[in-house]
Structures are given as structure tokens and as C-alpha cells.
Design a protein around this nucleic acid. Structure first.
Lengths: 239, 239
DNA sequence: ACAAAGGTAACTGCATACGGTTTGTTTCGT
DNA sequence: ACGAAACAAACCGTATGCAGTTACCTTTGT
């Protein structure tokens, strides 16, 4: 392959249009740049990316398959989750994320540790500066950092399919300063446990972290006022 | 909607070609009707279904996305799982399936209970008759029965993504009569716990069940002989 | 005879095109 | 003026066609 001293650079095969579009759209969805009222129409997105409908359509179908979007007869849109669906989602997260985080702590390498610490520092700074958006981004970065350290690829991708956490974080942190402080302190504790490579502590802390997020979420939505209550209004506010 | 006494029957909108093809192919993949040496080429499948390549292509991409297939530059094919990947898969199953089964036991309705019992009876009959294929089908039916009773849709679909169990069952049960008997008895115990609605017992039994399957699987592949050893040969034999 | 290089067939990925269905709007009737 | 029905537009799903790429086969040179 590599002849003489030539730099090969892996060349990482030009990503297909479908892949580019998928990655880009997913990133934007994770940033909540689309609200439940926005409709993603294939032909528009295609024009935006300078391609035809087909790769866009395939990317959208993939996002639907992963729960980021819901396909309707009239355009694709961000799904509006019912409280019951959020409860289901939290149940799965409670089952797998603590163990996954514990595994990550066990296998943590220096780079990932640095990433975690940086995210924790960012979160603290954003909290002090009352920079809501920066706080959210720091929390997302923290999550991405430990998730990237999970060696079990199937476990990591399974967790990655639960995109709801983004909404959860936004909803829980955007409004209440008290919640922001509690969440940031919890994140710092979690970070400390990671840096100590204390897998058991990480698991415990993660369990608490999810429980806290769940309580904050449902407290915001005064559970019981309507069983199938939707989260549309707040999500709109967040977007 | 429904005018006069007309029977509405939901009419269940004619499924799209993509959906039909996807469902059919997934069912066949779950039955291991394709081996790792078979290549699924879109144009062939399209001819087989009487459609064009596009819906087939989308169905294949979806199956790739769910791990049933792996897309190469030269046709789509059944992925060959390494031992490490199987270990990862078992780890996730250990995390979620016991709790999911326990939930199913809690929420079990009469129809699902009947399905479980029928599958258990079938398994016993197949065992006595030394009908390997029927035994496998009964075990798959049993799994489908309790999985269908899981109310948490996200949990159920998450479990459903791990298609490896089919291969595991095949590999573990096809060859060894002793393993077959142990597995069948474990299934009957599990079934009894389900029928008692004993959620805790179901969770425990499911934990044991998965551990047993895992041990049987790795015993068959004399772990350690090669770390990245592939499962190709046995899967061929099974298919 | 074997290896290397070039050619060819096959398959994927993307583009364009068309029909069907659903939705929103306008017009007509009461 | 309000409702219903017909019309128009938008968008999804599918078909076909074309180009690029990759693997396999053939051929040629040593």
C-alpha cells in the first residue's frame, strides 16, 4: 500500500451523500435546532445539500428508524413524546446507562478523561456565568465523552438511540437555577468518580443522575394533570 | 368515520412495498434462511418481489441499520460476528432482558400466557421427538410471546434489535442433546414463573437462562483459541 | 507456469421522472 | 354566512436510468 515514505492518511473514503446528510441532520436534531412544528421535506433538504431527494430520503428514513424523527404522510417531523413514552425511555436508561458508564470508567483512557474534565469545567463556568445554552452543550459534551469511552459498541449504540436525553436536559436546565446547580454538582461528582476510575461509584452516581433528571422532568410537567399530556409546548420554548 | 353499521376493520392501509420487503426479509433472516455466504443483491430481490430496486434498497439499508445485514461494496450479506461481538451482545442482553421479562410477567394477559404455555408444550414435545428444528421454533415462539407482553415499547424494540439470539439458540441447541434438555427445562421453569405472575422469579430465571446460553455458546467455540475467531463455519452448518 | 496488469461484468449510489394520496383552499349551493 | 364538495398543490413512494467503483477474469509477459 504505502510506497516509500508517502503519507497515506487513511484517506477515509469519501463519505456518501446519504451519510453526510444523515450525520448533519442528526447533529442538528441533537442540538434541537428543529422543533415539532418544523417539517423536514426531502426536496427542501435536498436543495439545501445540493443533492437529489434520494439520499435525503434515505437519511430521513434512517433517522425515523432511530427515533429522531417520525414520518407522516405530510413530511417528516420531530416526534412529540408523550409522558408515557418519556417514562418508558427513562426506564431503559436506568437499566443500561449506569452499567455502561461503569464500564467506561473501567476502560477510560487519558484522552477521554481529559474530555470529561474539560466538559465538567465548562459546565461549571457556564453555570457561574448563567449561560444556559453553554451549560446544555457542556452536559451533552460530557455525555458524549463517556459514551465514547464505552468499549462495547452494541451497548454504546443502544444508548445512543435514546435521543430524548437532549430534550430532558434542555427542559430541566433551561428554567430553574436551582436545578442547574444540582445538575452541575452531580456532574462534577460523576466526573471525579470517572477520574478515579471508580467504576462502582460511577454506576451509583449515574443511577442517581438519571433518577434526578427523571424527577426534574416530571416535576416540570406536573404529572397526572393529563395522562397523555404532550411535551409540545415546552419543546417549542426550548427550540 | 364509521357510518351506519358498516364494518370498518381499520383497513390497515396497504403496507408499502418497502415495508413488505423489509418484514419478509427480516423474518427470513430470523429464521437463518440466509448464510454468511449468500449475497443479497437488490436487483435480484427486486425481481423476486416484483418491484424495482428502490424499495428493496431501502429495506436492505434498514436491515443494515438494525444489524441484520452488513452492506459491502459487493452486495449485502449476513454479518459474521466475532466472539467479541457476541460477548458484547450478551452483556447488553444480561442488562435488559431480565427486567423486561419481569415487566412482562407483571403485565401478562391471558392470551400471552396461553401463548407462552403453548410454546413450552411445543418445546417439550419437540425435545421428546428429537425434532431439532421444531425445538428451535418453539423457543423462538416463547421469546416472541413474552416479548410481545412487554408494555414498554422502547424496551421491547431495543431487545428486538439483538437478533443474535437466533444464532445462539441454533448453535447451542442443534448439536448437544444434553444442552437441549437443560434449555427446555429452564424454559419450562421460566414459563411456570410467568404463569404465576412471579415477576421476581422471572427476572432471576431469565438471568440464569441468558448465562446458560452464553456459557453454552462459548463452550462450543472453545474461547481463547483465537481471540478474533469467527463463527462462520458453525453458522453455515446451522443454515 | 505463474504473476501482474488491464479489461469487463456486476453492483452500489445518485439523479430524474411519474403516479398516487393526502391536505389545504376555493367555490358553489343552501 | 356556513358547510360541503370539487379542485389544486404538495409531498411521498416507486420506477428507470446513468455513472462510478470494485471485484473477478482474462490475457500477456517473463
Amino acid at each position: 500500500m504505502a510506497r516509500r515514505g508517502e503519507i497515506v492518511l487513511e484517506l477515509a473514503k469519501p463519505p456518501s451523500a446519504r451519510e453526510r446528510i444523515y450525520t448533519e441532520l442528526r447533529a442538528r436534531l441533537q442540538r434541537c435546532e428543529f422543533g415539532p412544528s418544523d417539517r423536514l421535506v426531502d426536496i427542501d433538504v435536498a436543495a439545501r445539500f445540493g443533492t437529489s431527494r434520494m439520499p435525503v430520503r434515505e437519511a430521513l428514513l434512517q433517522l425515523v428508524n432511530e427515533g429522531y424523527l417520525s414520518g407522516t404522510s405530510r413530511g417528516f417531523m420531530v416526534p412529540v413524546l408523550s409522558l408515557a413514552e418519556m417514562r418508558d425511555s427513562f426506564e431503559v436508561r436506568r437499566l443500561i446507562e449506569p452499567r455502561a458508564a461503569a464500564n467506561a470508567a473501567r476502560d477510560l483512557d487519558a484522552a477521554a478523561a481529559a474530555g470529561l474534565e474539560a466538559a465538567a469545567v465548562d459546565a461549571r463556568a457556564a453555570l457561574e456565568a448563567h449561560a444556559d445554552e453553554a451549560l446544555i452543550q457542556a452536559m451533552i459534551a460530557f455525555r458524549a465523552a463517556w459514551l465514547g469511552a464505552v468499549r462495547n459498541a452494541r451497548l454504546a449504540s443502544t444508548i445512543g438511540r435514546f435521543a430524548d436525553h437532549v430534550q430532558t436536559v434542555r427542559l430541566a436546565t433551561l428554567h430553574d437555577a436551582q436545578t442547574q446547580r444540582v445538575a452541575t454538582e452531580g456532574l462534577e461528582q460523576l466526573c471525579a468518580a470517572f477520574l478515579r476510575r471508580d467504576a462502582l461509584a460511577v454506576g451509583d452516581r449515574m443511577t442517581m443522575h438519571i433518577a434526578t433528571a427523571e424527577q426534574a422532568f416530571f416535576a416540570l410537567h406536573h404529572v397526572g394533570d393529563s395522562e397523555s399530556g404532550l411535551v409540545a409546548a415546552q419543546m417549542q420554548a426550548a427550540a
